[in-house]
Design a protein around this nucleic acid. Structure first.
Lengths: 149, 149
DNA sequence: TAATTTGTCTACTTCTTCTATAGAGATTCT
DNA sequence: AGAATCTCTATAGAAGAAGTAGACAAATTA
């Protein structure tokens, strides 16, 4: 199960992606539109800012924007940033690998082999689905190219 | 991520399946073989007994056995019994379905559609892998048939 | 029947994570 | 100066994860 936090992050980023041409978007607007507790969303956005996924401006007319290209920001990426590994057990995670303490022999552990398949199937889906793949989300590059005309 | 409890349950059941022809198996033997904290394993086995997956006998020469046929007990089944849903979000779970509180429209929620694919991929693997599919595990039916000769 | 060997049951603990909330502070614009 | 925003720090309640302790009940066997 992914956490609510991860789901909120995803919804917020998707909202930002959809509204991208509008420039800065208020926290409170995202919170209201996606029904996310405002203060909780604040904390999430700060995290995403540290990860350099979004950017913000303070003061009047301030707000948030995406900095990452939605065509290159995958859902898997977002979930990992918030929740950590997508893998069902640490010992099959690529980025968060950790040995099982109780495992007698990792190389022959059949549970591990099975879980590896689950990990791969999950990542195949989430790491190849980008924010831009959701309807009404335009990739930044497309706009940038348009601007250069 | 599945819990340690679920992993322990899986390992214990697999051990029981492999030792099935030996009759009753001690908690402490399983705990030692699979490096599971003994008291924790006790609690897990009680759960599995309530679920009628295993059976036990007290007193001297007591212990545990599998009652379910390893050829019909899937890994998905075991994990669900211990951890609950395999789905990444409740709203795509079949057996543990629950509406997201913040979701505006479930029918068009694109995150949900994506998560449904993840759920299906995960269940496709875990619900079609049975304890008997692990090496050295013999299905009970095979033994039962043999006994009838 | 008493001792021993098992599983059973109840209760508790400790730690961490999840899901927030409150409120003062900093920044920007008008 | 004043209003609108984001920011930072602190706190907190609930739940769950992972385990531990110890008395109790049942079966065997000497």
């Amino acid at each position: 199960m992914i956490s609510k936090k991860a789901k909120y992050a995803l919804k917020a980023l998707l909202y930002l992606a959809k509204q991208h041409d509008r420039g800065l978007v208020l926290i409170s607007e995202i919170a209201a539109a996606e029904r996310i507790p405002r203060k909780f969303l604040e904390a999430i956005l700060v995290d995403l800012k540290v990860q350099q996924i979004v950017q913000s401006t303070r003061g009047k007319n301030g707000g948030y924007t995406l900095v990452k290209d939605p065509a290159q920001l995958s859902v898997g990426n977002v979930i990992r940033m918030v929740d950590g590994p997508l893998a069902p057990v640490h010992c099959v995670s690529h980025l968060y690998y950790r040995k099982c303490e109780e495992c007698v022999d990792e190389a022959t552990c059949e549970i591990r082999m099975l879980m590896k398949r689950v990990r791969d199937a999950t990542c195949d889906i989430l790491d190849t689905t980008y924010l831009a793949d959701f309807s009404k989300v335009t990739a930044l590059v497309v706009e940038e190219e348009a601007n250069q005309i």
